[in-house]
Design a protein around this nucleic acid. Structure first.
Lengths: 110, 110
DNA sequence: AATCTTTATCGTAATATTGCAATATTAAAA
DNA sequence: TTTTAATATTGCAATATTACGATAAAGATT
């Protein structure tokens, strides 16, 4: 026990959950917001921006990357991280579905 | 160590992270989808729908509720759970900001 | 080549999450 | 009022996450 039973859920449900989970930490929200704000996106800048140690930030970046929310390009010495729009598209699509579902629900019980 | 350092982040960042974290499990995604699909929303139905034991589902419902994504109304013997649209509104707003941010970013490096 | 800079990885401690059996709670039904 | 039905809570084991110091890796600079 303790491990999520992903195999019992649909691929789509797991996909949304993975994306949401990746965004489920304030540091990772902050990273996404920072990447949106600045024009350049060097990893070191992110480390300086966040109130966390470098290895911790590196770990958060890896999680965002493995979830597909960001991508990283090696640029000489340093690494350039950017938002990956495809993941955001999936997210957006899910919320669009939610919206439609809510509109179609006539009977509101709560 | 081990605990998230929420105090170092903005209220907004923590709010988004909390919502995303609540959605960061396939069972909880499935619950939201189920609530959108059905007209009635009795807790027992959710338990039957999910491949998890009743206490586990109850726990997931509590997490969704404490994050503000759903609300529960006592209805006689049973409990009626529904989606709370205000939380979804916050989420939607965040993604709208992301969208704007992406559009304004001219320099794409990755 | 030696050093510096930048980022990743390892190891590990603290804490949180997931899942469920057992049990409690509360309201309906008999 | 006993029984049944529906949810919640407790307690606990397994696993995952968070954070960071120490260290590694790899390109840049001198």
């Amino acid at each position: 026990m303790g491990a999520t039973k992903s195999e019992h859920f649909t691929e789509k449900q797991n996909q949304i959950a993975t994306l949401a989970k990746a965004l489920g930490h304030p540091a990772r929200v902050a990273i996404i917001q920072y990447l949106l704000k600045v024009d350049t996106c060097i990893c070191g800048d992110i480390v300086n921006e966040l109130p966390l140690a470098q290895p911790t930030v590196s770990q958060h970046l890896r999680e965002l990357k493995s979830a597909g929310l960001i991508k990283g390009n090696i640029e000489g010495n340093s690494i350039c991280y950017c938002i990956d729009e495809t993941a955001l598209e999936i997210f957006k699509q899910f919320f669009a579905h939610v919206e439609v579902g809510l509109d179609e629900k006539k009977k509101r019980c709560c």
